[in-house]
């Protein structure tokens, strides 16, 4: 039972201190320290979030901007340490967050493959054995020996995706990444993700595109204001998400109506 678990998130809470103005220089810190004026606004990006993802599941993480989607991914990836609770992963995890952001612009594509591989925790021999496959999949050809600063953003994304998918992760984190590159590469990468899925890779997928989610995922996690609203079958999750969207729009419309009404009332009052 236990070895069937890929990700276990246990009661995770993530608190950010939003100091009203960010103090990152000594002078200001000193003045504020003396005036006892270091104010922090506490903000819980996540609160009491618990779920368990089994191996081989492809989970969509859906929710509004600021719902905590990226934060939960970063907690799972180990980049952020949660303020409360714990997140455990079982298996080699490869995050694909904002592709190509980690490349060194001065380095060539080939050198960046080794650097990125090393950052993901792989050894030289392993990267050596995968190198040709990565280059081939990225379709970069001779550009692989050109510094990355001369790449287009699509080329960077292709290289990033190629590295992350060829190194055979057990848990793959995809954050809005299947929407990069041209149409043919997008199809190719979707195929690649599907192939990995068939091999039993666990996928965590963040996207605003319901169509893409339907293609990849079988389960959904719905987050709203840092809270877990729903975790279960995909279609149910999407329905809940859409219901939430409707609620929001209704609330927004009602609010707008109200303000419009009061504005009109005010005008009436003025006229009278």
């Amino acid at each position: 039972m236990a070895n069937n678990v890929a990700v276990k998130v246990d009661n995770v809470g993530m608190k950010f201190n939003l100091s009203s103005n960010k103090v990152d220089n000594l002078k200001e810190y000193f003045i504020r320290f003396i005036k006892r004026d270091i104010m922090y606004k506490e903000f819980w990006a996540l609160k009491n979030v618990s779920f368990t993802i089994n191996k081989g599941d492809r989970v969509a993480i859906i929710g509004y901007n600021g719902a905590g989607k990226s934060t939960i991914l970063k907690v799972i990836a180990g980049v952020l340490k949660p303020t409360e609770g714990s997140a455990k992963t079982y298996g080699k995890i490869v995050p694909l967050l904002e592709l190509g952001a980690g490349f060194d612009p001065q380095y060539t594509g080939a050198e960046n493959i080794y650097l990125y591989g090393a950052i993901l925790g792989y050894k030289k021999e392993f990267i050596d054995s995968k190198f040709d496959k990565i280059v081939k999949f990225s379709e970069l050809g001779d550009f692989i020996n050109v510094p990355v600063k001369n790449y287009s953003s699509g080329m960077k994304a292709r290289l990033g995706f190629s590295i992350a998918s060829v190194v055979e992760p057990e848990i793959l984190i995809l954050d809005e990444v299947l929407s990069v590159g041209d149409a043919s590469f997008r199809k190719k990468s979707l195929r690649r993700v599907k192939k990995m899925m068939n091999q039993g890779v666990t996928v965590l997928f963040v996207s605003h595109s319901v169509a893409q989610i339907r293609k990849v995922c079988n389960k959904a996690i719905l987050l709203d204001h840092g809270q877990l609203k729903f975790y279960g079958e995909l279609e149910e999750g999407i329905a809940k998400y859409e219901a939430l969207a409707k609620d929001r729009e209704l609330a927004k419309a009602a609010k707008e109506n109200e303000t419009a009404k009061t504005a009109v009332d005010d005008k009436k009052g003025e006229n009278a």
Partner: peptide, 9 residues
């Protein structure tokens, strides 16, 4: 910083 914010190392 860009790397630190994305991958655990």
């Amino acid at each position: 910083a860009a790397m630190i914010k994305k991958v655990y190392v």
